[in-house]
Amino acid sequence: MPDLVIRNLHANITGTDTEILKGIDLQMSKGEIHAIMGPNGSGKSTLSHVLMGHPGYEVTEGEVLFEGANLLDLAADERSRAGLFLSFQYPFAVPGVTVANFIRMAVNAHRKGGPDGVDNPVRIPEFRKQIQEAMELLEIDKSMASRSLNDGFSGGEKKRFEILQMAMLQPKIAILDETDSGLDIDALRIVSDGINRLVGPNMGTLIITHYQRILDYVKPDQIHVLMDGRIVRSGGAELAHELETSGYADIAKEVVS
């Protein structure tokens, strides 16, 4: 069975009848790169947050299996510790908490309750080495580690720090929600290089994007087109270019007819 299996997923905004996801089916595994493309308002970000466990959405139908277990039964922190990661489109600032301290807490949360139920906090020198390597990979200045998380960061810096967290937490499946938005061309290259280095036999990624620009750097195995809460087409990398030339409108026509 694939590592992530989404079956007929329906979701509303919590407490309303507003249905955003109207039956999503998708399967992927570690080692694979999938992209979800779609126009604004198609439900792309909602899908990423429903998978991560955002309290603002409720699943009304369908199921999600992560390594065979029911993902929807878990709270967001449990999903994270199970190996799911979401790079936020709009990360939150946490004033007074440094990047390094925060990431160390997150890493330690993942190392809680090991095989024999014992916590295994990372040793500080080991942690320091790892985070420095990851920061170098993403061309982040060392001094940034002692700044408050996302506090006063530019849009591009926030995205780099999302990928830094991904690198440190080593998820099995990483969802990247509009990670390319707000990045200039150099930053896009750096972030994409980082993603390419991290994706491998132990990690897969689901890239959510409006534009195909990032897909020139991170080559997807499969592309899915999301419109009005449903995946209307899936295909190989060539689909991105088709979208680029003909736009979502043509697909919409195609789907309706």
Binding site: M52, S80, F92, A109
Partner: peptide
């Protein structure tokens, strides 16, 4: 949402709000 953001990194709800 801020708590959810921190929880998405593996912190429990109480850890997130205390942080």
């Amino acid at each position: 949402e801020q708590i959810y953001y921190l929880m998405s990194r593996g912190l429990s709800e109480a850890e997130a709000s205390a942080l």
